[in-house]
Simulated scan of single mutants.
Amino acid sequence: MLFAPDTEESLNFVVALGNTEPGSSRSGEDELSTPAQLSELLTKWTYTGRIDHDEAELREVRDTRTLLRSVWVLERDEAVDVVNRMLREAKALPFLTRHDQLDWHMHATSPDAPLAERIRAEVGLAFTDVIRMNEMGRLRICAADDCDGLVLDLSRNGSKRFCSVRCGNRMNMIAFRERKAGS
């Protein structure tokens, strides 16, 4: 096991959230442009507590998406300052909780805090694990030429390069065609 289950869950959420941006989304469009799209994302990635389902919340989550994508590509020492600021601004006070079907895991803010603040605090905690374990190299951008999707590499040997099978297959087909043309 590389990270605790709640850390992996938060990091996977960052991938899902980050990959709603144009250029990394499957459609090429912004897949987080309406409150309904945010609600759909939250059916796959559960956040307990306050959810307003309004335009203001959507704007805050989109701003958080931009921030989290920027942290994703930082070097370890650079990430520390940003992550510390995220936790400080959220007034994060980590605590253990168990709810729904989930075993003990960490939350860092009140369930009444705005959704974007809770996202930043919980992802900030996940980033602290990544930083402490010196595993920032597990957070990548897709190696496909025309994709900037986020990649979380949880493989044993740290060799995951693409955000999806689709990108991997496309790049492999391009490489195959280039080899065939060169023969």
Rank of each mutant, 00 (worst) to 15 (best):
E8D: 11
E9F: 14
S10Q: 13
S10H: 06
N12W: 07
F13I: 00
V14Y: 01
V15Y: 05
A16F: 05
A16G: 02
L17S: 04
N19Q: 15
E21H: 06
E21R: 11
E21N: 00
P22W: 07
P22D: 06
S25E: 12
D30S: 14
S33F: 06
T34G: 05
T34F: 03
P35V: 05
E40Q: 14
E40W: 11
L42Q: 09
T43L: 08
K44Y: 10
T46A: 10
T46E: 11
R50Y: 10
D52W: 04
H53R: 14
D54R: 00
D54K: 04
E55H: 13
V61P: 00
T64E: 00
T66I: 13
T66V: 15
L67M: 12
R69I: 03
S70P: 01
V71H: 07
L74R: 13
L74F: 04
E75M: 05
V82S: 06
V83W: 07
V83M: 09
L87F: 09
E89R: 07
E89N: 14
A92D: 03
P94K: 06
R98D: 05
H99S: 00
Q101C: 04
D103L: 15
D103K: 12
S110Y: 02
S110W: 04
L115G: 01
A121F: 03
E122Q: 12
V123T: 14
G124K: 02
L125A: 02
A126M: 08
T128Y: 01
N134C: 02
N134F: 03
E135A: 15
G137V: 06
L139Q: 06
R140Q: 15
A144R: 07
D145W: 02
G149E: 10
L152A: 08
D153Y: 08
D153N: 06
L154D: 11
S155K: 08
G158N: 11
S159E: 09
R161M: 08
R161W: 00
R161G: 09
S164L: 11
S164C: 07
C167Q: 02
G168Q: 10
R170W: 01
N172T: 10
I174G: 04
A175Q: 12
R177Y: 13
E178H: 13
R179G: 13
R179F: 11
K180W: 04
